[in-house]
Design a protein around this nucleic acid. Sequence first.
DNA 1: TTGTAGGCGTTATCAT
DNA 2: ATGATAACGCCTACAA
Lengths: 343, 343
Amino acid sequence: MQAHRTKPPTIKDIARLASVSHSTVSRALRNSSLVDPKTASRIQQIARDAGYRASAVARSLVTQETRTVGVVVTTIADPFVAEVVSGIEEVANQRCYSVFLTESKTDSELEIKAVHSFADRWVDGIIVTSSRVGSLHFKLLSETKVPVVLVNNQHSEASPHSVMIQNVEGSRQAVQHLIRLGHRRIAYIRDRFGYQSDAERLTGYRAALRHAGVTFSKELVVYGDGKAEGGMVAMRTLLGLQDPPTAVFCYNDMTALGALRCIHDERLQVPQDISLVGFDDLFIASYTHPRLTTVRQPKRQLGQLAMETLLKLMSGQDSVDSISVPAELVVRESTAPPREVSE
Amino acid sequence: MQAHRTKPPTIKDIARLASVSHSTVSRALRNSSLVDPKTASRIQQIARDAGYRASAVARSLVTQETRTVGVVVTTIADPFVAEVVSGIEEVANQRCYSVFLTESKTDSELEIKAVHSFADRWVDGIIVTSSRVGSLHFKLLSETKVPVVLVNNQHSEASPHSVMIQNVEGSRQAVQHLIRLGHRRIAYIRDRFGYQSDAERLTGYRAALRHAGVTFSKELVVYGDGKAEGGMVAMRTLLGLQDPPTAVFCYNDMTALGALRCIHDERLQVPQDISLVGFDDLFIASYTHPRLTTVRQPKRQLGQLAMETLLKLMSGQDSVDSISVPAELVVRESTAPPREVSE
DNA sequence: TTGTAGGCGTTATCAT
DNA sequence: ATGATAACGCCTACAA
């Protein structure tokens, strides 16, 4: 491996150096059996010395595949998304795929632009995570004939291939946990932008209530925005109620974080005054005070599964179906029996 | 825009449809002035109808540029890194560059593999953030002649171009703040893997102590790992001291998070019993209890600056120098005068 | 203003 | 086992 001041060497340069044709070089470098082992290793040595690296773009032009995948996310600054992407990247890397990362910022214009860019670049596959964008882009995705896998997509017009968390069952468990502790006035802070997953978590919430014979109370369901800020505001609303809840189930951990902030600011205690449950089990859930009870999503694994699914699709397997991953309740310190019951 | 069941159309297909040569199509689609505006728009219409998209890989082969940049990070699951990358992605996207994201996981093998992959793919530039990998790979980076920009790199053999936070001044401010509150026994929890930035923050810490005439106490400097876990362990050590510190400055917010956890677990109070300062100002710093006093790094901006620097480099400007970005102390609730003084 | 021809760096299909 | 030769899809002189 050596620095080259001018243009990097091409396959023809190596051919010249080795006094063979460039086809032979090509074969030698790809360990083709159609080449004398001796000359092969000789050529490999020469190529190495010259610092030769085959151009992926030239190769792609002829092979018609790029060994790249496009990943579009709302924003990588979201810790949930970041972990999913980390999982994707891990298995992509293992299989020698490079990943293009693009943020859509919940802007359908940008999302479309991203998909177009991916198509132009001949990516072999696309993964879309937690897209909040309307259905219009599904047409686009199906137009371009590259395989697409969705992760926790927020729209029901699902693509044939997706990896999703079991929202209903997860939230059912969470609320059931609160009920077993003795809670009856249990609130749910929704995500105004959550669409599908928010609807499903609401379903689980209602199912748990119904199962326990607790009547659903409209005032106990309020909207957040899936972020801490929205959780704070929503919690404030709940605390202002005539008869406030004794427990709150949040759309996700970020929302719970905001709710916790609000509760602290009101000089109330978790879980003594109010129990709190999140969703996702972000890293931070183990470091709040108190530690947050939450529903775990195997985030990294979701990413890995998505990439593995995409790999199958790209290799031509068409019998790949969607994957539904179970969520798991993690009980920590933010939940306890309500005051009335515990006394 | 129309679905095509078979192969996507090439420039020649469009040429045929428009009854012109493919060179004319090429010109028309790139708004060349060397083409009759009328035929140009006619061709554009035809291309649009046919769902034609020029292949970026074919174009790259002839133009010798890909409009892609490679970004290597330790792990995207690190919230600091994620925000930097978000900044990079934002300006890259604006300028129609796509970004390859690769995790090195602090493994020099992987980091080298990533750079090789980038080189093979003819990326126009590379950004490396918070690399902990040894200097050996700098040789590699300079070998490949693509422009490289480093963000908060952890080694002093810096590349000519980098974007760095002002660690010394930032930590000096943090510790000075503690001193002004009346603290004298101030600890620093280092990052075992922090190299350059850890050393610089230590320097700032010592400078502030010296300036205030506080003698440096070796036992008050302990090692964490830059993560919450390490912060916990380090804090436990500090609390076990004969004469524990009244304030602790942490390498970063993650470390502070762990320290806070430990303090809570010991039934001590922040800031009444002990003051705590972090570094980074991650999102979470505003949502701890109490809110964390910390030194802000404009993370997104670091990424933007890095990408802008890279853009200049790629456009041939060679008179680009490194950038040093000021850090800003953000005083919140985790710092207060020590007990002895406040009573 | 438009068309023709060559080349970007590979892989792949023929011969030899 | 090796070497010409032709793609791959696009851009760009150069010619017309």
